[in-house]
Amino acid sequence: MPEGKEKKDRGWTEVHSEECKGCGLCIEACPVCGMHLSDKLNGRGYHFGEYQGHGCTGCGVCFYACPEPGAITVFKN
């Protein structure tokens, strides 16, 4: 969570890594190129999507691009 950060972006994206299947559609969709696949694997063997930590505008396109019901939550400032 971005609370307590000094300089806040307009948005923040959280990927729940255990719900991710590593399809990469959020990376393709993000207009500010704010997502990437992690080097790590989740419990089911997928390189999960990760928010790189800055630049999010809270637009929500990754949320709609992601096929999993709860893998992505988008916050708006």
């Binding site: 729940h16 255990e18 719900e19 299947k21 590593g22 399809c23 990469g24 559609l25 089911r44 997928y46 949320f63 709609y64 691009a65 992601c66 096929p67 999993e68 019901p69 709860g70 893998a71």
Partner: peptide, 22 residues
């Protein structure tokens, strides 16, 4: 053992549509 994700394949459009409907 997995109560978080759907049974759909990675990248399947069903999940997106489910989300829109829900």
């Amino acid at each position: 053992g997995d109560h978080l994700t759907t049974h759909y394949c990675p990248g399947c459009g069903h999940g997106n549509i489910h989300k829109i409907v829900a």
